[in-house]
């Protein structure tokens, strides 16, 4: 656990880089974390995923799965993998300021 300043905000992040408190999150923080993950620009489709994940988390208290992002969020799995290459669920959750997904799916 470490405290650091991202986009002018002081936030706590765990060893893997996930925000400890989802309420610390801002859109500017999302852009900075995305850059750390080699996603240099967040497109409208990225935001569609991020916003869906945050809304779903706020509503259900659970990070949505890839299937949830497909069926309820309306983002096909293929697109999700090209938006967030090499580990879409984890990367999208990190950029959305949520914790690490714990499920197997």
């Amino acid at each position: 656990m470490a405290t650091e300043t991202i986009a002018g905000v002081s936030v706590e992040r765990n060893e893997e880089g996930f925000l400890v408190n989802p309420d610390d999150w801002t859109e500017e923080i999302a852009k900075e974390i995305a850059k750390e993950l080699d996603i240099n620009e967040l497109t409208d489709l990225h935001w569609k995923v991020i916003n869906f994940m945050r809304e779903s988390f706020a509503e259900k208290g659970q990070i949505p799965t890839i299937r949830g992002i497909k069926n309820s969020g309306g983002v096909p799995t293929k697109d999700l993998y090209s938006l967030f290459p090499n580990g879409p669920a984890k990367k999208a959750a990190m950029i959305a300021g949520l914790g690490k997904p714990q499920g197997c799916i």
Partner: peptide, 13 residues
């Protein structure tokens, strides 16, 4: 409940 899809959907995913 765990979001594990039926086989055809899973294969597609």
């Amino acid at each position: 409940k765990l979001d594990i899809p039926p086989v055809p959907e899973f294969v597609e995913m």
